[in-house]
Simulated assay, not measured.
Amino acid sequence: MRRSRITAYVTSLLFAVGLTLTGAASAQASSSAATGYVALGDSYSSGVGSGSYISSSGDCKRSTKAYPYLWAAAHSPSSFSFTACSGARTGDVLANQMGPLSSSTGLVSLSVGGNDAGFSDVMTTCVLQSESSCLSRVATAKAYVDSTLPGKLDSVYSAISAKAPSAHVVVLGYPRFYQLDGSCLAGLSENERSAINSAADYLDSATARRAAAHGFTFGDVRGTFSGHEICSGSAWLHSLNWLNIGESYHPTASGQSGGYLPVLNASD
Rank of each mutant, 00 (worst) to 15 (best):
L19N: 01
Y249T: 07
D92M: 01
F177L: 10
S254F: 08
L14N: 09
S254K: 06
R137T: 15
E190P: 08
R2D: 12
V170S: 09
L135Q: 11
G106Y: 03
S198E: 14
Y178Q: 02
L149V: 11
L237M: 09
N191P: 09
A141L: 06
A206T: 15
A25H: 10
G223L: 02
M1K: 07
V122M: 08
F15G: 14
S120C: 04
A29M: 10
L135H: 08
V17R: 02
V127H: 14
A208F: 04
L110Y: 05
T224E: 09
I245S: 11
R5C: 10
D204S: 10
A34Q: 07
G87N: 01
Y157C: 01
L128A: 15
L264G: 03
W71C: 05
A211E: 03
F15E: 03
D268C: 10
W236S: 05
H228E: 07
L149A: 10
V127L: 15
L264M: 06
I196N: 06
T7P: 02
H75T: 14
L70M: 08
A167I: 09
R137Q: 15
C126E: 10
C231Y: 06
P150R: 02
T124I: 13
G219F: 05
P150L: 08
D42L: 13
G227I: 13
S133H: 05
V145A: 12
S56N: 09
Y9K: 09
T22W: 05
D92Y: 01
A8Q: 09
Y157K: 00
T83C: 02
T83Q: 03
D220P: 08
A141R: 02
V156N: 10
S254D: 12
S257F: 04
S183H: 02
A199V: 14
A8H: 07
D181V: 11
G41N: 06
C184I: 14
D59T: 15
D59F: 12
S103W: 07
S43W: 00
N265S: 13
D220V: 11
L14K: 07
F119H: 00
L188F: 09
F82C: 04
S30P: 01
P175E: 05
Q97I: 11
A33T: 13
C134F: 13
D204F: 06
S32W: 04
A39Q: 05
T207P: 03
V93E: 03
S78T: 15
S130Y: 12
V221P: 15
G36V: 07
S136R: 04
T90V: 07
T83L: 01
A186G: 02
A27E: 08
A211H: 04
C231W: 06
G223Y: 01
L153H: 04
G187S: 06
G259K: 02
V221F: 14
S239L: 03
A29Y: 11
N197M: 10
G246M: 01
